[in-house]
Structure formats: C-alpha cells, structure tokens
Design a protein around this nucleic acid. Sequence first.
DNA 1: AAATCCGGTGCATTAATTGCACCGCCGGAG
DNA 2: CTCCGGCGGTGCAATTAATGCACCGGATTT
Lengths: 299, 299
Amino acid sequence: MRHLKVYQMIEAVTRAGSIRKAAEDMNITASALNRRIQGFEQEFGSEIFERLPRGMRLNPAGELLLHHIRAQKTDLARVQSQVADLSGVRRGHVTIACSQALLPYFLPRQIALYRRDHPGVTFSVRVRDRVQAEKDLVSFHSDLALVFEPAHMVDFEVLYAIDQPVHAIMSRAHPLAAARTLRLRQCLDYDLVVPGPQYGVRTLLDRAAKRIGRQLEPALETESFEMIRHFAALGQTIGFQIPIGLNPAAHEDVASIPLSESDLPAGQLYLGQLRGRALPVASIRFAQQLTAALDATGG
Amino acid sequence: MRHLKVYQMIEAVTRAGSIRKAAEDMNITASALNRRIQGFEQEFGSEIFERLPRGMRLNPAGELLLHHIRAQKTDLARVQSQVADLSGVRRGHVTIACSQALLPYFLPRQIALYRRDHPGVTFSVRVRDRVQAEKDLVSFHSDLALVFEPAHMVDFEVLYAIDQPVHAIMSRAHPLAAARTLRLRQCLDYDLVVPGPQYGVRTLLDRAAKRIGRQLEPALETESFEMIRHFAALGQTIGFQIPIGLNPAAHEDVASIPLSESDLPAGQLYLGQLRGRALPVASIRFAQQLTAALDATGG
DNA sequence: AAATCCGGTGCATTAATTGCACCGCCGGAG
DNA sequence: CTCCGGCGGTGCAATTAATGCACCGGATTT
C-alpha cells in the first residue's frame, strides 16, 4: 500500500528513535524521511514528534496518531482478507496472546481442530503474561487474548470467561496425592514451586496465604509452567497450576488436586479482544470455537 | 491529507458513478483518475469496481473497502480533534440523527446547554426516521442516533434507553381531555391523525389496534409531527405522540394523555452509536449529557 | 576542544503523476 | 441497420512531487 508509506515512516521513526536510523532501516536518505515527516505534521496540523538532542520521540499527539495508524493498518488487513474470502477459499491469520497454561494441550488441540476445517488459516501464538497480553491487544499485535486473571481489563472486551480453580500438583507418590481436595495449609508444610508474581496463580496464592496469616516461602520460583510441572514430579515438592494446563484424558506423571474453594476462590480464564475493534473473520470464527470448547470443559 | 487522495478518488467515483464525471468533480483528467483507481486495485489485490458499459459501480469487495475508508476518515478526524483538545480549547463537531419528536424541546435545549460550557463545539442535527437513522450511523454520517423504537438494531450499540409511553393529544376542549389515562378503543371513536408507517408510534398503534380486533383508519396521515400536533388542536381529532416531544413545563395548546399500558406497551427511546466505533470526545461528552438528561426525565 | 550524532535545508536528479490525444466498446436514437 | 455519445483504457510528453547529496548549526559525549 504505497499511499500508507508516510505511516510506515512514522512507525519506523518511532521504533528507531531517530530519523537517521529509521532512514537507514527503510533504505532512504535521512533528508527524504525528514521532509516526509515534516510534510505530514504540517498537513496533520500539529507536531507529532518531540525533537530531542539525541533523536525523536512521539509526543502525546503522536501517541494518539500512532494508535490510529495501527488500528487502520490492521483494519485494512482485515478488509483484504475478507475480500479474499469472497472469492472462495477461507484464508487469514489469527494472532493470539495467551498464558503459558494454554500451551501444552488446549491451544494446540484447538488450532489443529480449526485448521482441519480451514487449512488456509495460519496462526501466531504469543506467550504473554497477563499484563503483556493486554498491551498486545492495545498495540494491535494480537487479535485475541486468552489469559488467566487479567490485570486491568481496560480496553479488554470479554468474549468468554470460565472458572479455573487452582490445582496443587505433585508426584503420585506424594503423601497428599490421594486427597480429593486440599486445604492450603496442608500444602504449606511442603516445599513449594510457584510462578512469579506477574502471574495470576501466584496472586491468588499470595492473597489466600495472607488470609490465613501465612506467607508463601517458595523453594523455587520460576516463569516456566513446564518447569513447575516437572519439578513438582520430583520428591515431595508441591506446585500449582490451573486444570486447563493439564491433560484431561491421559494420565499425567503428576497428581492434580483442586484446592478448597473456601481457602482460595477459583480464578477466571478470560477470552477477550480489544474493546470495539472489528476482528478479521478468521479470528471471530476461532474465538467462537474457543468459546464453545471452553464451555464444554466447564460443563 | 494528501496521502488519502486515493480514498477521496474512490469515494468520488462511487458517488459520481463514472470515472469521467468523478474526474470533472475533482478537477483532474479522467485518465489520471483512471490510472489511480487501477493502481490501487492492483495494490489492493482485487478489483473494487464493476465496469459497466455506462460507468463504474462498487462490487462487494469495494463495499467492504468503502466502509473501511469512511471509518478511517472519521477516525482520523477524531484523532485530529482530540489533538486539538490537547492544546487547550475544546473544539469539535457532533452529528446526531434523531426522530422528529426530539426537535421542538429536548434537543435544542440540550445543545444549548452543552454549548454554554463548550462554545467551540458545533452540531449537525439530521432528522431521520428510525431506518434512516441507523443507516446514518453505518455510513458514518452521524456520530449518534436518538430514535424511538429503532428497527433492526444491528450495528446499533445502545448507550441509553428510556421508556416512552404513547400519548394521545387533543384539544383541551375535547370530551376526553380530562381523563388521566385513555383506552385505545375510546380514541378510535374519533378522527385520528397519525404518523406514517415508517415511524415507531404508528407501529405500536397498529399492533395494539390489531390486538383488540380493530384497525386504524386515520383521517390524516402525515410525516410531520408538528402537523399532527397542530391538527389535533383543531376540532375533535386525536393525534399521538411521545411525551418527550411535548413541553414539560409550559402549558401546551393541546392536552396530552397517556394511553393505557395494557392496550399499548410503552415504546423505547434509544440513544446509540455505531457498534464498536470510537467516537470523538465531543460526541462522547454530549452523549453522557443526553444520558443524564434522559435519566432525569424518566426519574 | 574535538568528535559524534542529531534535525534541518538548498539544489540537482530521479521517479511518479498528470494531461492530451486517441482507441475500442456498448447502448440507445434515428 | 447506422450513427452518436458516453464509457473505460492506453501511449507519450509535460509537469510535479519525491529523493539523494552535500552541507549547516546545535547539543552531548569524550
């Protein structure tokens, strides 16, 4: 889209932080780029960059404009893919930001299922914690977000929500492995492996521990849910995870036991999009499939 | 915005129905315009016009694109006015599509009220029946719509809704003028003056009449609510209107009596916008004021 | 004080856009 | 039927806009 080159230039300058670097990235001279930016600012009626001694940075007006630019770029892409749809084959690309818990079983299965019916549709999965996931929506880097206990919910339009009680996971040989539900204080007697504070499971755990006058003293804190799972399988350590991250069918190498809801109320897994945004067809359809699938696990 | 000239050209061709006429409108030659269109179609990846022997018409892909073009144009305008806001004075323009009933008292008062605080904001009021009002939103010709009993509600995002029972209006000398409420069948004994079938009041009346095994046989059918009001003031004719169209404070020259809700359930007056659209600040603020004002009349 | 990196500008060059003249096509009027 | 008028499309020359190059002045870093 040649007529949108100014927008690309603005994005490039924003990214690079200076006209000269951006010009190099775009394989043009700094002077050409400089004049396009100046020309645009004049047409636009306001400067959009602060001129710093070391380069350029968007001013508030520029931030507003950048948001518009991204919105319009992704919307044009949506129109184009919708047009492609008109002439037969369903094509498209879905970008989804999601929590780690969705990676092992749920999402791969859903994507495969969707692609069986629509082989022309491709996917990007961006692993993000809940804060990053929301930023991803706002910056138009992701169409959908599937996150546990999102943080702010501003600009987050909920498409579906489902309860996810926190489960304790441990070796099948663990003394507590036979229980049907566990109290939090039972778990605190053992070594714990928990996710970092930026994750919803941790927030819920911290809150619950505080309520019974205790404090989490984890033996291992990690960002990797996979490591939590594997570490919990060793010795008598206890890890925590939400059930959607565990294989519902086959037997795991770990036992998974829900924590009592009176200790720790169930968190919620949210499927959402940027408020008010028109999604591409493929994303809408995929979101519908996810909603149906989540609904099935819940009932 | 020079980089959006292609879009203006596409709009011009759509409006004019042929390249040559559009070219004349834009003061360029047909060949230049022709090539820009062709160039765009190539970049876009699909034709957007049908070539007819008598001119050009948008194809389905073009319709999709046109919607995007309008959306992006109005959104850019929103950004610009929002940027203007940053530097002090609140400016802006609000376009609202509304039913006739809002014209005599409610809207002028609200607009005056808003402009007292924000003199920089200007208004366009487009009088539309409920079908046209929704089209106005979709085509980005109006920011807001304030309509009685809208028809489809697709793409219509409700910002506020309030009950409006249908009132019978008549001369103060009319035999029924002293009643507190009226049954529909009482009214049917007199000559009636009613709006055309495209209006919500009429739909409600027709439906209610049918339910008591009667049919409306109006003496006068008109599009003009003003004419209904004035005609009802003469002789023993009965007209119908919703209370928001009547002066709440001063004494009218006509009596206004609500119809019994068991005959004719109250319709609803909706304030709405195009689903998912980001409105300019001024429109948002004005919508908030309207919501508060409607809420006050209802309570 | 020197070196470096920055945004901005004058001027020649290059690329894109436009205007002009003209083609072939099709529907309607004569 | 023919002919006319309006249509979209195209080759080519003229015009206009965008770019590259060389360079300036200013601020920060070394």
